[in-house]
């Protein structure tokens, strides 16, 4: 259902100029971060019985938490930018502002 919904939304957004920068890159970054977190956790759990070194556990746990933190930062940053862009597109730019020419997808406004 998720993929089907995504497919139809992509059919609508796919031709838009902001599709890659506003959708593909943030979503892929989020997926890559989750995959990093997954690879850390599966590596940790598959080595639980063969690694008796406390330092090893701490390193893996630290990497896992670090990747989770990066994932959160990326998702919040891109989500905020995306929401800002969508609201500006829907409601119009505030009085006295316009989009910066090179950064429309981030929703950054110039005076």
């Amino acid at each position: 259902m998720i993929l089907l919904a995504w497919f139809f939304l992509a059919r609508i957004w796919g031709e838009k100029p902001y599709y890659r920068k506003a959708i593909v890159i943030p979503l892929s970054a989020l997926i890559a971060a989750i995959a990093t977190s997954l690879s850390c956790s599966v590596s940790f759990f598959s080595h639980v019985h063969c690694a008796a070194n406390r330092q090893f556990y701490l390193t893996i746990i630290s990497i896992s938490y670090l990747s989770s933190a990066v994932k959160e930062i990326i998702s919040i940053t891109f989500f905020n930018s995306f929401c800002k862009l969508v609201s500006i597109k829907a409601l119009g730019t505030p009085a006295g502002h316009q989009f910066c020419p090179d950064s429309q997808w981030t929703g950054i406004l110039c005076t």
Binding site: I25, A32, T36, V42, S46
Partner: peptide, 21 residues
């Protein structure tokens, strides 16, 4: 062995996502 396959699956997701970027 699963301990090789499971991390490889996660790395494959990471690779495709990075290629998209």
């Amino acid at each position: 062995p699963a301990k090789i396959i499971e991390p490889l699956i996660a790395l494959s997701i990471m690779y495709v996502a990075l290629e998209n970027i």
